[in-house]
Write a protein that binds this DNA or RNA. Structure first.
Length: 879
RNA sequence: GGGUGUGUAGCUCAGGUGGUUAGAGCGUUACGUUGACAUCGUAGAGGUCGCAGGUUCGAGUCCUGCCACUCCCA
């Protein structure tokens, strides 16, 4: 027997353990069925599950479970990302609590500490994914720094290097002074701030009392100035071009040059040029062959090229201003809106800095990645994201992949004493290559930089499947993967890079479809963040409402391309939905509705049972179509509607007279049909609510097959012949209920109903379903009207037939007149609409015949109803 | 500044190719709790679909402009 109440905590975890120990998530590699594969976007090992994951992983699990039930060979490949900066940061923070810095430890010991930490605290998120019900094949769990994936990284790196697609260059890069590493453009967040614009002047060399006026937001960088630029079209200033300005304080002469970078309309029209500390100035410097003067240390303090060595930029700025004021060269300071770059992890200001770094030639790699999408080999859903993808890919810049961190893939680069570079997969190979080239044994030192985290996750689609082992069964079976499900915020970080790396490494697309979903926001539509304190912990939600409720919420809210706002009421509503299903199952149990082995639906006789079976099959078809089209909300709402609105509200209510009646044959058939439909519900609801469906499946009967592997019904022939009769019955019941409510008839009052204007067939249906109608509409009887309607009858119209109920003494006829008047007004309004359309010659001519026909049909139906209402009004006019 | 979305009931949201009286959940009102469901049932109220034009026999849906907000890239 089922428990009286639905309590997900009692069984969710047990069910998951059972799936996992039985190996239910593993693909049957011996099967010759079609393959279906999703690679899990690897969460950070440092991570804990947030609502974004809950959405992402629910959608994937729905696709995975659906396809598994379709009988395909299904793999959901899980794993975690080492998340270079993020993880190093967490471990460093822990060490800092004990007063230790990573430098105290040294590289090796620090990395050891990180690994130890990873073993202990990492992988929390994988446990949480299990709690959500994610049916990943955990036996294949990968980590971006495990042996196989590291081999993949080395192999691709060497290949790229030897193809000339990875190179080392001294360039201006985004420098994070907290972590003392370069970061890529994507890891820089531009924030609008109100800063200051400082106006000061530089003396002109050899011309006493002559100055050039400068406006800058960063006065302290003046020590790195190597020119002042003026536009050649600047009438007021062009006479200064070719002269020299003197940098005050340090008294260095710098040229005044002509360059269009200096907009005559902005600031003073003259721009100081600091090529080593500004991306625009760097370009100007290149055009004019200007020297580069670096004024910063790696920790963003000023260096010996300035008078303020050792001071941070803010302090140095104040000192510079003071000094300029002393010299009488400071003119004014104004508020100035500006955009300042910050590190996405560190939160400190990012400084452009000249350093030696390693780059991937992204523009070359992008070509194939663009073509694959242009040619439709990989499709984005929703398609509009292709635009975003193309926009980015066509303007892509070289990708800085070196990081001056310790935690990550150390680059497979070795230097000989003279700096010659050797790039090989192993040290031994590098040594051999070096010895050969030099003709003697040379000492090699390895590059200390590690790779950007996204380099290894860029290989995820094939490295996790066994590459570089080209003979891996999994690689051969599952690559290219079927779908990638991810949020749009990592389209550049990850999706674009996987496309590039896969097209380069595998010469094939990584996935056929990329499904992009939105962000999960808080109740008010604000982005969730720890600093705002508006995050909702999925684990708490699961604790409170069950994993199924949270999953169903995510599915039901997922409409293509839109963000989802958290809504606790709604989650509670889906928990109630599970309760509803639970109780429906209990109802079946109490009425001995047990699944009948080899139950043949084509032998069902009763219309009511035929009807619900057909509806269940229609619902199945709808769910299938919607899942295949990635219309998650339509799929979820379709099942919801069927279970609650059709099965519980109508079918269960309608079969009660049968189940409580005397007809044993009808009872048996109804019990079996009920059980069949409930089983069907468990099947089609399983991808969305795997726990409650499994719990019911296992407890209602002994089964030949586990629900997780139950075949998904396909190609069914749906017998719809009973639909019309039942639709009519439902319509009659609704009309009578409406009438009762509107006329405030006491619920207990048992009424007699009479039907007129019905066809032969309709009368016969009404006779067949009389006990159901009476029970649900709370009537004493329903039969055909003989003779004329008596004047105390109120009427309601249902479809083409009229239902009359004598209410002598029960009812307030003034209220009834009012009700009928209201109905009449609505009919008149509709009739006016139909008439307007049908009298419009161009509508009749141009609209499709079907539409015109339909309009005429509606008109005549409304006219007939109007007559009925009018006659009813006339009948009770004097009461 | 460039690009991209969004604006529909009190709230949160659905409304693939234009075609009934624009739907759901929550909330709300009235009635009920009848042998699955103190997590239930029945019925109702509630919307000039952001604004203004246009295309069309017909526009929430397509086009143009405007307003407001979101996000991405500078």
């Amino acid at each position: 027997m089922l428990d009286k109440t639905y309590n997900p905590k009692d069984f969710e975890e047990k069910i998951y353990e059972n799936w996992e120990t039985d190996g239910d998530f593993k693909p049957d590699m011996k099967s010759d069925k079609e393959a279906f594969c999703i690679v899990l976007p690897p969460p950070n090992v440092t991570g804990v599950l947030h609502m974004g994951h809950a959405l992402n992983d629910t959608l994937q699990d729905i696709l995975i479970r659906y396809n598994r039930m379709l009988g395909k060979k299904v793999l959901w490949q899980p794993g975690t990302d080492h998340a270079g900066i993020a993880t190093q940061m967490v471990v460093e923070r822990n060490l800092a609590k004990e007063g230790i810095s990573r430098r105290d430890f040294g590289r090796e010991k620090f990395i050891e500490t990180v690994w130890k930490w990873k073993e202990q605290s990492g992988g929390t998120i994988c446990k949480q994914l299990r709690r959500l019900g994610a049916s990943c094949d955990w036996s294949r769990e990968r980590f971006t720094m495990d042996e196989g994936l590291s081999a993949a990284v080395r192999k691709i790196f060497v290949k790229l290097y030897k193809d000339g697609l990875i190179y080392k260059a001294k360039k201006l890069v985004n420098w994070d002074s907290k972590f003392m590493t370069a970061v890529s453009d994507l890891e820089v967040i531009q924030k609008e701030t109100v800063g200051k614009m400082y106006y000061y002047k530089y003396p002109i060399a050899g011309e006493e009392g002559e100055y050039i006026h400068i406006a800058t937001t960063r006065p302290e960088t003046m020590f790195g100035d190597t020119a002042v630029a003026v536009s050649k079209d600047n009438e007021k200033l062009k006479h200064l071009i070719g002269k020299k300005a003197i940098l005050p304080i340090i008294n260095r002469e710098i040229p005044i040059i002509a360059d269009e970078h200096a907009d005559p309309e902005k600031g003073t029209g003259a721009v100081k040029i600091t090529p080593a500390h500004d991306f625009n100035d760097f370009e100007v410097g290149r055009r004019h062959n200007l020297p580069l003067v670096n004024i910063l240390n790696p920790d963003a303090t000023l260096n010996e090229n300035t008078p303020f060595a050792g001071l941070d930029t803010q302090t140095a700025r104040q000192k510079t201003i003071e000094k300029m004021e002393e010299l009488g060269l400071m003119e004014k300071i104004e508020d100035h809106p500006m955009v300042i770059p910050y590190g996405d992890r560190s939160g400190v200001v990012i400084e452009p800095l000249m350093t030696d770094q390693w780059f991937v030639d992204a523009p070359i790699l992008a070509k194939e990645a663009i073509r694959a999408v242009e040619d439709g080999e990989t499709k984005f859903v929703p398609q509009s994201y292709e635009k975003t993808y193309f926009e980015w890919m066509r303007n892509i810049q070289p990708w800085c992949i070196s990081r001056q961190l310790w935690w990550g893939h150390q680059m497979p680069i070795w230097y000989a004493e003279d700096g010659t570079i050797f790039c090989e997969e192993t040290e031994a190979e590098a040594q051999a290559a070096a010895d050969k080239q030099f003709g003697r044994h040379v000492n090699l030192t390895r590059e200390t930089d590690v790779l950007d985290t996204w380099f290894s996750s860029g290989l995820w689609a094939f490295s996790t499947l066994g590459w570089p082992d080209e003979n891996s069964d999994y690689l051969k079976t599952f690559y290219p993967t079927s779908v990638l499900v991810t949020a749009f915020d990592i389209i550049f970080f990850w999706v674009a890079r996987m496309m590039m790396m896969s097209m380069y490494g595998m010469k094939k697309i990584p996935f056929k479809t990329i499904y992009m979903h939105g962000l999960v926001r808080d109740e008010k539509g604000q982005k969730m963040s720890k600093s705002k304190g508006n995050t909702v912990d999925p684990m708490e939600t699961i604790e409170k409402y069950g994993a199924d409720a949270l999953r169903f919420f995510m599915a039901a809210m997922e409409t293509q391309g839109r963000d989802i706002n958290m809504n606790e009421n709604r989650i509670a509503g889906y928990r109630n939905f599970a309760t509803k299903l639970w109780n429906a199952a209990r109802f079946g149990e109490m009425n001995e509705a047990k699944p009948v082995k080899n139950f043949n639906i084509s032998e069902v006789k009763l219309a009511i049972n035929k009807w619900i079976i057909a509806k269940a099959q229609e619902a199945t078809l709808e769910v299938s179509k919607n899942i295949e089209a990635f219309r998650f909300s339509d799929a979820a709402n379709g099942v919801y509607q069927f279970v609650w609105g059709t099965f519980c509200d109508w079918y269960i209510e309608m079969i009660k007279p049968i189940l409580y009646g005397e007809d044993e044959v009808a009872k048996q058939e109804t019990r079996a049909s009920f059980a069949w439909v409930l089983d069907r519900i468990l099947v089609i609801l399983h991808p969305f609510m795997p726990f409650v469906t499994t719990q019911l499946w296992d407890n209602l009967a002994s089964r030949d097959v586990k629900l997780i592997h139950h075949p998904w019904p396909q190609n069914e022939v749906i017998d719809n012949q009973s639909a019309q009769a039942l639709d009519m019955v439902i319509d009659i019941i609704s009309s009578i209920r409406s009438l009762r409510a509107e006329m405030n008839l006491p619920a207990g009052a048992k009424l007699k109903a009479y039907v007129k204007d019905a066809s032969e067939a309709e009368f016969s249906h009404i006779k067949d379903f009389a006990n159901i109608i009476c029970s649900l509409a709370r009537l004493e009887s329903i039969e055909a009207l003989s003779g004329a309607a008596s004047s105390d009858m109120v009427q309601t119209v249902s479809g083409s037939l009229t239902i009359l109920i004598p209410l002598k003494g029960v009812v307030d006829f003034a209220a009834e007149r009012e009700r009928l008047q209201k109905e009449l007004a609505q009919l008149d309004k509709n009739l006016a609409g139909y008439a307007a359309k049908l009298s419009n010659a161009s509508f009749v001519e141009r609209a499709p015949a079907k539409v015109v026909e339909e309009e005429k049909r509606r008109q005549s139906e409304a006219l007939a109803n109007k007559e009925k209402v009018e006659s009813a009004l006339a009948r009770i006019a004097n009461l």
